[in-house]
Nucleic acid binder design. Sequence first.
DNA 1: AGTATGACCAACG
DNA 2: CCGTTGGCCATAC
Length: 129
Amino acid sequence: MGEQSESGLTPGEESRFVEQVFAVVRRIPRGKVTTYGRIARAVGAPRSARMVGWALHNSPPDISDVAHRVVNRNGELTGGWSWGHPAVMRALLEEEGVTFVEEFQVDLARHLWEPDRPVQLPLQPPPTK
DNA sequence: AGTATGACCAACG
DNA sequence: CCGTTGGCCATAC
């Protein structure tokens, strides 16, 4: 039997990483946001923030409903173009009560949600400029 | 099989 | 504040 694909995963099983990423994203509360890096840490891959972005880019419909709650570590809507324009993503967030400090930068100090993670030192939100 | 790129992050100068 | 470098690793060419 084989042998699994070079990815080390059999078809149908799907990557646990991706599944876990989606599980975390689904738990982001309305009116809150979290970051790629924090999701990566929450699933045990602290240095694979890029893979989180990759997973979201391939996100199924059920994730697309809450994907706008994921921003980069600075609160910027780096994935905004996936909605056609960052303004669309911003509108979705404002609709949930999220406020902004810049045109496409959310107020992390007020709306940051931290996923349950194993155990890590608390990270403070970056200073406003 | 190697290179380039990416919804990222962090350290450094 | 900006640019560069390194790390991550899947995808496209």
